[in-house]
Design a protein around this nucleic acid. Sequence first.
DNA 1: TTGTACGCGTTATCAA
DNA 2: TTGATAACGCGTACAA
Lengths: 337, 337
Amino acid sequence: MDKNLTLKELAKLLNVSISTVSKALSGSPEISLETKERVQTLAKTLNYVPNSLGRNLKFSQTKTIGVIIPDILSHFFAKALYGMELMASELGYKIIIAISNDSLNKERDSIQTLISGSVDGIIMSLSQETQAKMEIEHLKDVLDHQIPLVLFDRVLSIIPCDKISINDFTQAEQATMELIDAGCNKITYMTGIPNTSVDDQRKQGYLNAVKKFGLPKQVIKFDQKNFPHAILKDLLQQNKIDAAIAADELSAILIMKSVIQSGFIIPDDISIIGFTNGIMGENFLPSLSTVDQHEEKQGCLAMETIIARIQGKLPETPVHYKLKTSIIHRESTRNYS
Amino acid sequence: MDKNLTLKELAKLLNVSISTVSKALSGSPEISLETKERVQTLAKTLNYVPNSLGRNLKFSQTKTIGVIIPDILSHFFAKALYGMELMASELGYKIIIAISNDSLNKERDSIQTLISGSVDGIIMSLSQETQAKMEIEHLKDVLDHQIPLVLFDRVLSIIPCDKISINDFTQAEQATMELIDAGCNKITYMTGIPNTSVDDQRKQGYLNAVKKFGLPKQVIKFDQKNFPHAILKDLLQQNKIDAAIAADELSAILIMKSVIQSGFIIPDDISIIGFTNGIMGENFLPSLSTVDQHEEKQGCLAMETIIARIQGKLPETPVHYKLKTSIIHRESTRNYS
DNA sequence: TTGTACGCGTTATCAA
DNA sequence: TTGATAACGCGTACAA
């Protein structure tokens, strides 16, 4: 049980050469059955584990994928990460995780440390700041270093790389239309995650739908740490709102909480629909109707894609998978026939 | 902008030796100012990034910490991970994340891949299965390979390594006593995470408190995917329960939901107190009174500890930090003076 | 069937 | 002030 057993030490113990040991352990047919067994049993009893540092250098690959996400506390990213980990471990890959905290600088730093060869590929979802400033030099760096890159969820179309996303536009449009179908005609789009690509597309989908039906549009941006309780209450009292589309799960919960605290009833007074099928929305009273984004599947797919890209199994031109999603009807929206 | 620029290539371009380039880039005083600048500017324009694979092998260290947690969807672990990432990036370390999914086998596999030299140390919280079966061979493996190990939250005292935990026993005891103070005398301990060390200690703390005050004890174990709604309703109707201590956040939410759906009032009919200060408990209606476990701080501390251990800054005998925690009073418990 | 020698990219020691 | 060389641990082409 020495600390770091190497091939060299094994070879010395067995009185054979290093390469013999190496070959014997990899089961090469060049080696006689006898020595092969001799080597293998000793390796096993001594609990030999090949040092991956040497292997990494030899093959210049690490079997590791870097994952950069803006946030780990949001259910969406946590579940996406879960999917990635599942797929990665199945395919024999490890994950280095970095959390950008929606900061461009942190994102840049993380990329800097990752492109030095510690990972074979990078999966990321862009930080809010990155998308707001449209700053993409650091992403170019990744590409320049020939490191495969997969963008998911918060995607930027100008980056020439593989992408995974859901069709936010269509989904928001469909969600809006279902609210209209159910008889709502004062539908507001409320977002606690402004300046992200997903937010923008969802808003556009919403705007498109209300325009198509000649309904008034109303958009409220807010800070999730400082919800505009009074504003929403006013709207409710003046009967200027009868439905809300929330840009993400936490936004939806905050809206529902505020509505209830103002003494109004969900869904009788107002219907709410959110994005992301998380534990919070599932367990809130009333439970949240929501757009299921198949977070876990997005994560799996992102991991599958980057590994396929690394192994050269993908066409040279970037692929863009847009996942189909569905709406989960629960208690926060009115029934419609 | 070649793909993988190496010292060798730089040296050739500049017509100097490899070692000169290496020294120049590290700012060695051995090299003349002139060549130093010549080298550095070229390296910069060509966007040279030293390959960490080479460095890793040279120093046999990776500046990477392996983190194995049972679950990423629970707020506790997500936030602990967040704390770890924060501290790691501050100290120049990366994180490889593995999710055991509360399975012993997955935990074993993860350890196996990590001890081959891909990490300088391992932080982990034991899986439910590991704790239930008391199977620790794989942990011994880590120690045998001379890899520093830090256990946090779900800790096993027989493993000789550094540990971080909160004092679950005391906390549960204190939580119980506060419920008693507030006039509750039919207090039940309800757990959706049986067979974990934290659950066991919390239960013991609860039992100790009710025993001390001569109150009846009542423990309900359940599966979080299949909450015993009917049983709880019966207890409420027969007035056999007036307070519940929930072993974790999700358990607490499930209890509150069930209580409300049965038509009872929180905290008038029953007080609820949980563990973990997460978004769910914070935003539920009523908001959850809970034991704050300082998840983020536990994560930070775990990371600080393992790095200190790696750098030899810790005494040889293992340290065990037990964090003090506090109780956050919100709406799910009665006021008491 | 086994052993020798080399290269992966980096740093460090020592010689020029 | 600079350069040649060895070493980290592994795998492998080639020689024995």
